[in-house]
């Protein structure tokens, strides 16, 4: 579905800094791949390269056999947009405060001139239902919704064009732990129902260890380790992966301390 081959990218300007270095990874259809790293490690830049918002200096990004950065022409680009969509970290920034939920979800359908008003309205209803929002939410504006609901709207909008690949950039970082769990469950369900490939970017290894099929760990722009989730979390090979695993907050209390406290 998604193939990233030896991609390097830098941030513009005269003193350009290479933030993504020689990254090779892939996401198959119906697979969730976690990309884990600290802020500033280049994972968001990689997401922008994958979606075509940022041009890489070297390497190839292919989505379903099409080279993302070699697409020419409006029609081909639009066709590509329908394949790949993205969910951003902060839904309050990516949804327009001026649009109702219904208008926001309808926007991509209007852009691509899909269906007439009746068809679009029916599709918006389906999408609201898909992400678990009640129909009446459609008439509200983003600020009248909770963070979790906003993120559901953002996901519904991303799914309106029936993409086969979803790039999620820290989609639950801004949410409460209890709400985060619900959004993650939604992604799990969507993957099963729509056979969606998903690149899930986060700084939190704990989140992807329960969600992703495979995990890639990124440090300073390089993938330092990638593998199946069970292998990576139980037998980490790279020191950085081990330090990420050690940082995960756990609910277990050391037995000695427990004894002292009680």
């Amino acid at each position: 579905m998604l193939e990233i081959v030896e991609v390097s990218a830098c941030h513009g300007g005269p003193d350009a800094v290479t933030v993504v270095k020689d990254v090779t990874m892939s996401v198959a259809a119906g697979e969730i791949v976690g990309l884990v790293g600290e802020s500033g490690c280049g994972k968001t830049t990689l997401a922008r390269v994958v979606t075509g918002l940022h041009r890489p200096d070297a390497g190839v990004v292919r989505v379903g056999e099409v080279d993302v950065h070699a697409i020419r022409g409006r029609r081909a680009l639009r066709a590509h947009r329908r394949q790949v969509q993205m969910v951003f970290q902060d839904p309050s920034l990516t949804l327009s405060a001026r649009q109702t939920v219904r208008q926001a979800i309808e926007e991509p359908l209007r852009i691509h001139r899909l269906g007439d008003a009746r068809v679009r309205s029916a599709r918006v209803g389906e999408l609201l239902d898909l992400v678990g929002l009640k129909p009446e939410v459609g008439d509200r504006r983003p600020r009248q919704l909770s963070g979790g609901q906003q993120q559901r709207v953002a996901i519904a909008r991303a799914l309106a064009l029936e993409p086969q690949l979803l790039i999620c950039d820290e989609p639950v970082t801004a949410l409460d732990v209890s709400v985060q769990a619900k959004v993650l469950n939604l992604l799990c369900d969507l993957r099963e129902r729509l056979d969606l490939g998903c690149l899930f970017i986060t700084h939190d290894l704990a989140v992807v260890s329960q969600l992703a099929d495979r995990i890639a760990v990124m440090q300073d722009g390089r993938i330092v380790e990638q593998g199946r989730t069970e292998d990576l979390t139980t037998r980490p090979r790279h020191a950085y992966t081990r330090s990420l695993l050690a940082a995960i907050p756990t609910l277990e209390i050391p037995a000695v301390e427990d004894a002292v406290r009680s």
């Binding site: 769990a181 619900k182 260890s209 329960q210 992703a212 756990t250």
Partner: peptide, 16 residues
Amino acid sequence: DAVPRPGTPPGTRFRT
């Protein structure tokens, strides 16, 4: 229940 637990098989739903 909402706190992710490492070691849980991938794809396990969170309890919400």
